[in-house]
């Protein structure tokens, strides 16, 4: 398949400035589906221009660089949040939503460049917790506006990580599979054995033609990425 995404879902991808996480947005009528939200002016503009009223959020995992946009969406839209159970438990607590990694990376850059981006970033950061509407354990199936999604629990990068397949065409993998970098299992909550024994086999069982839309970096066919990984 040359064009693994049919034009039916109006799909866009926004990259966050600090840590380059990918947020994916689908719009249909007055509904939007946002995967791994962060706050972004252009995304807001996109929602406004399409007169969106209700937003569904899918989280691929609980790390703050993939959840920081939830408070904004919850405040301005009717929100429904769906994620894996362990992810739901984590994001309900303030301490897990601190942008420690982002602040740390910015601080390192600041030292090198003599800038103050970390200070500026923290000034605008507000603490938050997220309320999950639907959580699942191992597998889950969900239809959104006629698009068919299947969720797979894929622990390893984090306890609450999952991969989300859309219409047998695309796979949102969060940080559980990336085209440009190897998966990190060393974060707190990460587990290299779970990744090797549970998650990789799941990924391997899926169609190699799926277009992987990861949490960082470029998209690529599943088969091509796995060839490099295994």
């Amino acid at each position: 398949m040359k064009y693994p995404l049919s034009n039916n879902p109006f799909l866009s991808c926004f990259v966050s400035p600090e840590i380059s996480s990918n947020m994916y947005v689908l719009i249909k009528g007055e509904q939007a589906l946002v995967i791994d939200p962060h706050e972004n002016l252009e995304m807001q503009s996109l929602l406004e221009q399409n007169h969106v009223k209700e937003v569904t959020v899918f989280l691929t995992h609980e790390h703050p660089d993939h959840t920081s946009g939830v408070p904004f969406l919850a405040k301005n839209y009717q929100l429904k949040l769906i994620c894996q159970q362990k992810c739901a438990e984590a994001i309900a607590e303030k301490r897990n939503n601190r942008p420690i990694m982002i602040a740390f990376i910015l601080a390192i850059q600041d030292e090198k460049n003599g800038t103050h981006t970390e200070q500026k970033y923290l000034k605008t950061f507000k603490e938050y917790v997220c309320q999950t509407d639907i959580s699942f354990d191992k597998n889950f199936s969900y239809d959104w506006q006629g698009e068919h999604f299947i969720f797979y629990h894929t622990p390893g990068h984090s306890q609450g990580s999952c991969c989300i397949m859309m219409n047998n065409e695309a796979l949102f993998t969060g940080d559980s599979l990336l085209a440009d970098y190897p998966v990190i299992t060393r974060f707190p909550g990460g587990n290299v054995h779970d990744y090797k024994n549970i998650s990789l086999p799941i990924l391997d069982s899926l169609s190699s033609d799926l277009l992987v839309l990861p949490g960082h970096g470029k998209s690529e066919k599943l088969g091509k990425i796995l060839k490099g990984t295994l």
Binding site: I100, A103, F104, I105, A107, E118, P188
Partner: peptide, 26 residues
């Protein structure tokens, strides 16, 4: 490294049952 640092902080927070300020973490 930066990833390892996150692990250290998590371990310290758990061991002492505290939640550290971001500035202190850095």
């Amino acid at each position: 490294d930066s990833v390892g640092h996150m692990g250290l902080i998590a371990a310290l927070e758990e061991a002492f049952d505290i939640m550290m300020e971001t500035d202190d973490i850095i």
